[in-house]
Design a protein around this nucleic acid. Structure first.
Lengths: 269, 269
DNA sequence: GAGTGGTCTAGACCACTAT
DNA sequence: TAGTGGTCTAGACCACTCC
């Protein structure tokens, strides 16, 4: 495979970072220095840096420099049903979905910054449809940014039916999980969730909030949570820094699906 | 918000595409033409195109031109358990996982190109671990590219235990789904799957095979498929063009998980 | 004030596509 | 052969950080 000059430079830097020659937190040579050393134009060096930046290997700060990322470790998000009696590779796998637990697991300090005060807002058509309520109904909105060690991880914009959650505006449930509180207060248990994911480059607003640069991908997903009685109790739009996340899903292949599931395999035309 | 020139051009094009002025499939002006019209250098125009390409709004083909794609043409991949008795928004949602079916649904002609002839290869450590067999055991390898209307969608590198699938080297099961054949031949039924996803920019090899440009994200995922008896019958590494995919997963929130699931919600420091 | 990354310019050559 | 996107060059100015 013939590599372009930028890819070649990216590969060199990638190797140095992954084998530890460049330790996390290290400031690497400036674009102009690299440009001289490697006999490439600055634009080419920049392109190489963009490539490995998107891979989460470096972070660039205007006016300061480019640093080896301390965050090679992706957060592992796991969803679905446990596969029992199976020795799972990697073995550190376990079910989880909690930002706090994920952060603890990799030894980071979690922090949540509210981008807006939680409030009651009329449901837009989209929100109403998602929560299965009439348009215009008041819903509890929360809009927040989650960070770990001051590094932004994701933006969460979430909506809840106000008859169940409205009083959260006035009372403080401290560290009690929201759905645990829901069960204790109303005896309502959450039961199922659906997540719809797409991956795309961050837009300008997201880049600012998540402090990533142009071209870095995010995973944008919508999450809907149902109770045992099929009522929707949460709908959220979440923007996660792609380089910091790994998503794991386990699912049953049911009869309906089994046939379709592997048409993949053998279509040769 | 002060926008740069490239962002400004991106916004102009984005608007024209989203409001229908530029219809899906339309060829848009070449980079050099845009450069003249908009009084920007070609590099600046290119940057603008890279931005909206990453958003899935356009597709660029070397030597041919740039075309409006329309984010609505993402393939919808759905996994997990059906949520019954729930009126699902969008309503076109249904369980599926088949490349062929997904393509049919959006009216495209599917095509599969084998990048290598299927063959028996000794399992590397990673493959062996994934298939739960000893390192070096012969496994059936398939390495192929899936396209629709000549547009590459994803690269699939898959491995199967050779005692079950080895004879596929000599016999032809035509259009019969692989796992349907497995069941008819051996009475073995697949039962569960796990997918581990990350999103990242494509590397050069992937860009060439998938014909996408630098900076475009891909979703890279590993899929493991188990039988009812917990035997692994497939392990695959899949690289999908992010702009062409939407992933949907549904899962149960079990008791183990329920508490963790929403710690998110209310941690304010 | 010196150095940094972010952006932009006006060229250039290449491989590929279409005709 | 003409046109396209992909890559690269050698400059330039800007806002910002650090000293």
């Amino acid at each position: 495979m013939e590599l372009g000059k930028a890819e070649e430079i990216a590969e060199r830097l990638r190797t140095k970072i992954l084998d530890g020659t460049l330790a996390p937190g290290t400031k690497i040579a400036s674009e102009r220095e690299l440009s001289d050393e490697l006999e490439a134009s600055r634009m080419t060096v920049r392109h190489a840096l963009e490539i490995i930046e998107g891979e989460g290997l470096i972070i660039r700060y205007p006016g300061r420099g480019t640093f080896v990322s301390g965050a090679q470790e992706r957060v592992l998000i796991e969803k679905g049903r446990e596969i029992k009696n199976v020795s799972i590779q990697g073995s550190e796998l376990r079910l989880s979905g909690s930002f706090l637990k994920d952060m603890e697991r990799i030894g980071r300090k979690p922090y949540v910054r509210f981008l807006e005060q939680p409030s009651l807002v009329p449901a837009t058509e989209e929100i109403a449809k998602s929560l299965q309520i009439p348009t215009g109904t008041l819903v509890l909105k929360r809009y927040r940014l989650q960070l770990a060690d001051n590094l932004p991880y994701r933006i969460i914009e979430s909506y809840y039916p106000s008859d169940l959650f409205g009083e959260l505006l006035t009372i403080d449930i401290k560290d009690k999980p929201l759905f645990t509180w829901l069960q204790e207060k109303y005896g309502i248990r959450v039961s199922k969730a659906r997540e719809i994911l797409i991956a795309r480059p961050a837009n300008q607003n997201e880049r600012q909030l998540l402090r990533i640069s142009s071209g870095s991908p995010v995973v944008a997903f919508e999450r809907t949570v149902w109770t045992e009685t099929k009522r929707v109790v949460e709908w959220a739009r979440i923007i996660a820094v792609a380089a910091l996340y790994t998503f794991t899903y386990e699912y049953d292949i049911d009869d309906w699906n089994r046939e379709a599931q592997n048409n993949d395999g053998h279509q040769t035309n």
